[in-house]
Design a protein around this nucleic acid. Structure first.
Lengths: 109, 109
DNA sequence: TCATAATATTACTATATCGTAATATCTCGA
DNA sequence: TCGAGATATTACGATATAGTAATATTATGA
């Protein structure tokens, strides 16, 4: 029996394309170092090197994480001299991260 | 140069354990079928079979997705006869999903 | 108790991601 | 222009996840 015959369906029929996009972005966020980078970048601009140091990973690794996140629109970057500054480009990240922090990252009250 | 010497650090030092947990849960959520299941379950109780039908996957696949999400506390289940009903157990899911929907799943205005 | 519905588990292959390391590119200052 | 700092790209083996299919478990009703 179809769900729609049992209950008034509370949702639009699934938009598979949108679900796929959402899943891809969530997967991109789903890494401890990348979550940390988002946290940092929500509070200011940082260079690759600064992010790498805070996250305790090599510079090239930080660069690669940033590339992945840039690919789904989280950040954009601008070069200044030989440094590259990253900053948040996706406004929804703030809200999303607030949800994540309220669940996982604010345990000491 | 350490970040902390450049700016007043706006964040606690990273709690790597918590970041890892958060990443794991996000990864669990990061699948189109699983996102859809969360959407549905936020609006009511459903059986494995009902979820499978709506998501257009075989029953055993639905069961496996549900097991993964149950493992990180999203849902709990109760058997009634030969059916098993799943429902949301993690209260933060509602807020988190609202963020995701506002970014990805509400594009038609 | 037997057949079947509903759910769950396991096995297997293909693909993706992770972590590490090596190498490349771009930029500035001597 | 040459060397070094900062960032980016590529390669590779190990592990994880996805998708499919086969099989197992649990509960109901005849």
């Amino acid at each position: 029996m179809a769900i729609s015959t049992k209950k008034t369906r509370p949702l639009k029929p699934a938009d598979m394309k949108a679900l796929g996009q959402a899943a891809e972005c969530l997967k991109t966020l789903a890494h401890p170092v990348r979550i940390r980078m988002v946290q940092l970048l929500l509070h200011g601009r940082y260079t690759v090197g600064e992010l790498a140091e805070d996250c305790d990973v090599p510079d090239n690794v930080a660069s690669e994480h940033l590339r992945l996140m840039q690919r789904c629109g989280f950040f954009h970057s601008e070069r200044e001299g030989r440094k590259v500054y990253y900053q948040v480009a996706e406004p929804h990240l703030e809200n999303l991260m607030a949800c994540i922090e309220s669940r996982f990252l604010e345990r000491r009250k």
